[in-house]
Design a protein around this nucleic acid. Structure first.
Lengths: 195, 195
DNA sequence: GTCTATAACACGATAGAC
DNA sequence: GTCTATCGTGTTATAGAC
């Protein structure tokens, strides 16, 4: 054991910097080659160091990829959370859709990383995906003084899938106007939810 | 070269049967473990033969998986094509959505195989996905005597993504009513396309 | 803190026995 | 037509030099 980290002592500044760098290049590698082809050798090469050095800073290859995944997910929830909090209750669903599309369209690497991660653990609790939007839709309906309407779970699932497809199209065709598509989706969603 | 097939002579009946069996088990293996983990060894084990025997019937591992992919795709397009052809022009988009959700909900293995395949070649021409539905929407609009409306490409992309999400939810929660979700989606689509 | 060297294994594919 | 045995490569991870 040549000094390999096992304890939970605080990270030194330079060690934190190395980890940040590795997370950064791992996002790029996964985005470009996919999760399956993101080998330790490729990550190390992209970072300009050796495989052994990577495994000094992280316990395993999966730990590197998990850290990269957590990083992009944190950025996503922070951005969407701020946008939703800044919107009035009856406009929160629209803000959610707009910011989700905007965030991922602005960060193609993050979008691809999230897609790859959703694929890799192929038993993700899908309710984690649609619950937040379903909750926002429920509150928005209350704020507008409306009674019960169409199934919010289905509405949230449809909207989530539509967001993925818009972002995916934008990834493949950078000329595609994802913002306009988001507006079309918002119009469809509000017309269905607040009919 | 121990008799390995390289020519295009017709397949014998038993050879065709072996290929069909291998395609069948490969669909199951890919659906369960994912494309990346669908190794030659696993496919061979699932079929009850050895790796060498698999590679006698197919030129490579990729050829086995490609054959399995082609099989599920053929079944999909045949089923959806028949449903669309049987519907009137102004009802074709609804028939497309209903049959797509129905077909994939009834065949979880096929659905997972298609998902995995879309992931694997991660530069698929996405227009192949939305063009057919966009065309149906255009014809339906003409059949109803309507003028130009919202962007059909975006409408088709949104609908396609929503279908994927509904099928995905159904895969994870077999109790989820995919049929009702398809009806909700059809209502949203028609209200947006034929407004 | 980073390196080299290597262990131990899974992969796809081929060769040749039977 | 199917087998065993094997080659060559790529993989994660560890051990130990520096």
């Amino acid at each position: 054991m040549a000094g390999r980290r096992t304890e939970d002592r605080p990270l030194s500044f330079i060690e934190q910097a190395r980890r940040d760098q590795l997370v950064e290049v791992t996002i790029g590698v996964v985005a470009e080659h996919g999760h399956a082809a993101a080998s330790l050798a490729r990550i190390a090469e992209a970072a300009g160091i050796t495989k052994g050095a990577v495994l000094y800073h992280f316990a395993s290859k999966d730990a590197v990829v998990a850290a990269a995944h957590a990083h992009v997910l944190d950025a996503l929830v922070a951005d969407i959370g701020a946008a939703v909090d800044a919107a009035p209750a009856d406009g929160a669903p629209a803000a959610y859709v707009r910011r989700m599309v905007g965030h991922l369209a602005e960060r193609p690497d993050h979008a691809r990383m999230i897609i790859e991660a959703m694929i890799h653990d192929h038993r993700p609790d899908s309710s984690a995906r649609w619950k937040p939007l379903a909750t926002l839709l429920g509150h928005a309906r209350e704020a507008r003084g409306l009674g019960p309407g169409p199934d919010l779970r289905t509405l949230a699932i449809i909207t989530g899938g539509a967001i993925d497809a818009i972002v995916g199209e934008r990834l493949q065709d950078p000329a595609y106007d994802a913002g306009a598509a988001a507006e079309a989706l918002v119009a469809m969603l509000e017309s269905a939810a607040f009919a």
